[in-house]
């Protein structure tokens, strides 16, 4: 969507072009909604952190692994997009699943869905944010799967995947390094 399309003096785009540009607008709007979701959690985190019962936790080692997995998956999806080979999407999908596995492992090492969750507010936030991020990533995994099956272009999934990678790095910094 450009300033030109906002004023619509020109002939409408072809149907395929219109579909493509509508997809971009819709995706951008959806991503803004995701930004607002994580912004809200951020606000809550910053407020809650000032509580007297706050006990900061160290970042578990395994989260380095998961982070590298996700960064790697962004590389593979980019290679796949540039070369146009859909095989790369399945590799990305595999890396995404490995990421989720590491996340589950990290959470269970830290205490999982047990007393720890209730006792340490920092862990409560870690749990909730990892969960919310993982759910969004699952949407991306579904998208990867469908895109690898279909014969059409790559569509929204590449942008979305990069975006969820960035969100993860943001979450990591917020939770442990801020």
């Amino acid at each position: 969507m450009t300033a030109e399309s906002l004023s619509r003096p020109v002939d409408p785009l072809s149907e395929a072009e219109l579909k493509e540009s509508s997809r971009k607008v819709g995706l951008l709007a959806f991503l803004s909604s995701v930004v607002m979701l994580f912004a809200t959690f951020t606000a809550a985190f910053l407020v809650r952190r000032t509580g007297t019962d706050w006990k900061p936790l160290e970042m578990p080692e395994i989260m380095w692994i998961s982070t590298w997995l996700l960064i790697g998956s962004s590389v593979t999806i980019e290679i796949s997009r540039v070369t146009g080979r859909k095989m790369g999407l399945l590799v990305t999908l595999g890396l995404g699943l490995a990421f989720l596995f590491c996340q589950v492992k990290a959470l269970s090492e830290m205490g999982g869905f047990s007393g720890a969750l209730a006792e340490n507010p920092h862990f409560s936030f870690i749990f909730v944010l990892l969960l919310v991020h993982a759910l969004h990533l699952l949407g991306g995994i579904g998208g990867l799967f469908l895109t690898s099956l279909s014969s059409s272009r790559f569509g929204w999934v590449v942008t979305y995947w990069h975006f969820m990678g960035l969100v993860w790095i943001y979450v990591l910094v917020l939770l442990f390094l801020s």
Binding site: T40, R48, G115
Partner: peptide
């Protein structure tokens, strides 16, 4: 709708954790 509803979503998620996981958000 796109920009403001996520705040309620986040609040509802934390509320569900307070209700069912014993957290203290």
């Amino acid at each position: 709708g796109i920009l403001a509803f996520p705040a309620l979503t986040a609040a509802a998620v934390m509320l569900l954790f307070d209700r069912h996981a014993g957290t203290s958000f």
